[in-house]
Design a protein around this nucleic acid. Structure first.
Lengths: 195, 195, 195, 195
DNA sequence: AATGAATGAGACTTCATTCAT
DNA sequence: AATGAATGAAGTCTCATTCAT
């Protein structure tokens, strides 16, 4: 029964590294220690494997998003936003394979799933955006950050997150966390209210 | 002949959208209006097409980098850095196919070229980093930006660039430029010296 | 158990419509509401299923032949021959699936069973032929039909039967019986003694 | 260039004997002396091979039908009808493979082409029926055959043809022609006008 | 320079079958 | 009696590539 899970794990890793088209069912089967036809006992085909993984990633991402939103409820904006970055970073690093695949699907979706993927990803981003925006609105009211439009701050913060999580792929864990802190410091220095 | 160029153009576009493994020589030939074997009159094979394109992208990138460095020679840091973003943005948008492939190769290189690609890309980034760093060093001296480590500022700026150019893929041209300006304003507000 | 019977029923229908090669054990299992491996509790394999069905058809055909021969014992030739056609027609229509498979196996036997099938079918035809021939011999003696060789009459009658039962596959029941009566009338008009 | 023709010839023969599902591309390729992928240089796939063959058979059948209709224009009904049988018999025997496949497709069409095949075959039969009916109408007027409905005579004659051409598959050429003549004699004896 | 014909390698997938449960 | 898991064998088809023209 764990074979299905093993297939998904192996396929996630392989799709992330070699891409959907670059990965063969043989690759996946080899990684699991079974033969290619056995995959069909659990999935309808290669596409179906990807779809299941994609669904799983989406579900987990939603759960993760809930955790992050929880994080954004109470406390100072500084802690909230930094916590957001760190939580997200930890998530990206702890689920390296899944997240690499997530980024790949987001940026370069395989033709077949293009529309489906694009749509659901945009929803995710919108939810995220709304939550972050709320933080900035409150932070402006509380004078935790300088004056400005919360919408624009959100735009800039999302850009920062995008940059960071693209970088999570280039650098090893240690270096990444170093950069994360540098970037955060630089960022907070610019956005925070100095008085 | 112009066929060779057409093949490279078509292949660039297709590799960018469908990936190297997801693109067939037939796809390329169809796009050009020839038959697959004709490609072998100009290239040694599929891999060779990618290698030529990759080389081309690299060369152009170097040229583009020269333009950018030129930009960074004289003037105020504010203009230099903003000019950098705009120049890069224009480049990314005018050569959409090439740049999409550039990002793809950078983030998800096909197995065969992995080491080669990783290496040369890191060189590019290093050059870029050095140039940007120089701008910040001077800007700190000139008190155009607040006090701080130029290295850290460079790190943050690169993160911003990465975020932006990842976003150049999500948003259409108009929206992208809007975001670019918002992000720049937010950024400059934070980094500039207020007195 | 009744499952065995259900398998044979479903397989008969499917072999008839889709052919032996065109039918999968999954098709059969689906039709029965079981899973493919369950078939192996009753049969040695796909070929064995066909063999059992084939044997069943053969046995029933022999029984049916006995009924028909019974029919040919007493009475007028006209009634005998017409009765033969009607009885056979009813049989073909009541056991549509079985008879469609019968025709298929007869005309286009799957390679594996070719020799076996050909042989046993020729026996059936020979028995049939002999019985019909006897009817004509007597009918000629009794002057129920015109003068002629009983062998030739049998040959013609068999041709008529073949034509009819090929047609039983084209036309729906109602139309088939209409044609049967027309053909019989035409036939009997030609063969009967007019005086 | 003749490879395409060879493929069609080989496939016709194999589809006739082993059925569409029972024939593999390897079987066909072997018969032609090529490898399976080469078939794709001429056809889109296995189904496409069948479709082309089917179209060819249909076209030839239409041509053959024209020949037969020509045959039915002038002369005595006896000669016309007997000529019809002989011409058809010669056709069936000279193109044994094609005609065996024709019968197979007519009686047991592979699922994919079922509707298409059924439709076009019914058209063929209707044309044939009309032509034969005309012969009987004239023959009744000319008192070449006994009184009766031409429609019914046509029905009976078609049944005879069906029977005969089903038999063309059982018996070898010599025996088939013997039976053909016997059946014809028996038939004509019954239908002709005796005075 | 271009391509029709051909193919080895290999991909995805189906299928009959086995076996432990 | 029934099936989930697994697989060897084989089928259809794609693809990069070669070669003669």
């Amino acid at each position: 029964m764990s074979t299905k899970i093993n297939i998904m794990k192996a396929a996630t890793e392989l799709f992330a590294i070699k891409g959907y088209e670059g990965t063969t069912l043989k690759d996946i089967a080899n990684a699991v220690g079974i033969k290619p036809p056995s995959i069909y006992a659990f999935f309808e085909g290669k596409e179906d494997v990807l779809l299941h993984i994609y669904q799983e990633i989406l579900d987990e991402h939603h759960k993760h998003l809930q955790d992050m939103l929880e994080q954004l409820k109470n406390g100072y904006a500084k802690n909230k936003l930094y916590g957001l970055l760190v939580t997200a970073a930890e998530y990206h690093l702890s689920e390296a394979g899944k997240m690499k695949l997530f980024r790949r699907l987001m940026l370069f979706p395989p033709e077949i799933l293009q529309s489906e993927i694009t749509e659901s990803f945009q929803k995710l981003i919108a939810i995220e955006r709304q939550a972050i925006n709320a933080v900035f609105e409150e932070a402006i009211r509380n004078k935790e950050v300088r004056e400005g439009k919360s919408e624009d701050m959100t735009t800039a913060f999302q850009c920062l997150m995008n940059g960071l999580f693209l970088e999570s792929q280039y650098y090893d864990e240690q270096e990444f966390y170093l950069r994360l802190d540098i970037i955060w410091e630089e960022y907070w220095m610019g956005i925070s209210r100095k008085d």
